[in-house]
């Protein structure tokens, strides 16, 4: 790991006013330090977010507010989260390991970099790490990579589970930048598809930080769950995962939310499958018809072809389980 300086300012104002180009924020450090050890990134200075005062989990007018520095373990265990937004708790409990969840934070999880093996090994070219150098994954080991949202420049997936749940729930992010105050942005507009600039991953401006995540409540949120399919039973990234929320009354689906993990360049919503469910009866044949369309638009790079059928089956299992 290259040398760097570490500064520990107090409060959001202190953090933002101390920021200068070349700095990186460190929260739990669980992703950043892996990348620094492998020289994938080499910031000159780290700004420690520990004293940012952004650790709280609270309810504001019925909406859930997650401070960016709340740990994955704290959010997963929170009683209101478990009752009103169970898909969030489940997505987190199926993430990483207990030790990582005690360290990793909400903000850091949303900004975890891709697990594409070429990206994380500086011995290889990679358009995301070194723009214009090429993408060895297109013809190489792409078994774990994206079937939705990729481009001829990059087919990396976003690896985190929490933002899949948050995407299904229409979460919004509060962002704060040096000199320009705060703004609120839907999570759906936060992530950027790779196109021909795969190194630009989010809408974050220079020096801008995530301060807070806001999640609205609703019957679809209360009746929600997370299904994660992986190579081993525990402590592994998703091959395919599905966050689903269904609002059902009198046997009729009033609202449906579905987002996928492990398959998209960003957490991937399925609006056409949701539309196929709304207004229909909550029964197996409706679920089967809707889930059959979950792979529509998918593009395989070769070794990841199995994910298309696995996506349909994962969505079907999630729908049947949440309606049971």
């Amino acid at each position: 790991m290259q040398s760097f300086e570490l500064i520990r300012p107090r409060g959001i104002d202190g953090i933002l006013s101390d920021w200068h180009p070349g700095d990186a924020f460190i929260a739990g450090g669980t992703d950043l330090l892996q990348l620094m050890k492998n020289d994938v990134v080499a910031p000159e200075r780290l700004t420690d977010l520990d004293n940012s005062d952004l650790h709280a989990i609270s309810l504001v007018d019925g909406s859930l507010h997650l401070g960016a520095l709340a740990t994955m373990a704290e959010v997963a265990a929170h009683v209101d989260v478990k009752r009103e937004w169970p898909v969030i708790s489940q997505a987190l409990l199926l993430s990483a390991s207990p030790q990582v969840r005690n360290m990793g934070t909400v903000g850091g999880n949303l900004l975890q970099r891709t697990r594409c093996g070429y990206f994380r090994d500086v011995g290889f070219d990679c358009n995301k790490r070194r723009p214009g150098s090429g993408c060895p994954a297109l013809r190489g080991d792409n078994r774990e990579l994206a079937i939705f949202g990729g481009s001829s420049h990059c087919i990396a997936t976003h690896p985190s589970d929490l933002p899949v749940a948050l995407m299904a729930l229409d979460a919004q992010l509060d962002l704060a930048a040096p000199g320009s105050g705060t703004r609120r942005l839907p999570l759906a507009q936060f992530y950027r598809l790779p196109g021909d600039t795969p190194h630009i991953e989010t809408a974050l401006r220079p020096g801008e930080m995530i301060t807070n995540v806001v999640v609205p409540p609703g019957p679809h949120a209360r009746n929600s769950l997370y299904v994660k399919v992986r190579d081993r039973t525990s402590f592994a990234f998703a091959l395919v995962s599905a966050a689903v929320g269904l609002a059902v009354s009198d046997g009729v689906i009033r609202d449906a939310r579905i987002a996928l993990g492990g398959v998209g360049a960003m957490p991937w919503r399925l609006p056409h499958v949701e539309a196929a469910l709304r207004g229909q009866r909550a029964d197996t044949s409706v679920f089967e018809t809707a889930a059959a369309r979950a792979g529509d638009g998918a593009i395989s790079a070769g070794l990841n072809k199995f994910k298309i059928e696995l996506t349909r089956r994962t969505v079907l299992r999630a729908l049947r389980t949440v309606a049971a």
């Binding site: 290259q2 040398s3 760097f4 090994d121 500086v122 011995g123």
Partner: peptide
Amino acid sequence: SRAARSEQPPASVS
């Protein structure tokens, strides 16, 4: 990747 590592000068020294 080991070769790439030793080529890089330190970005800053604390």
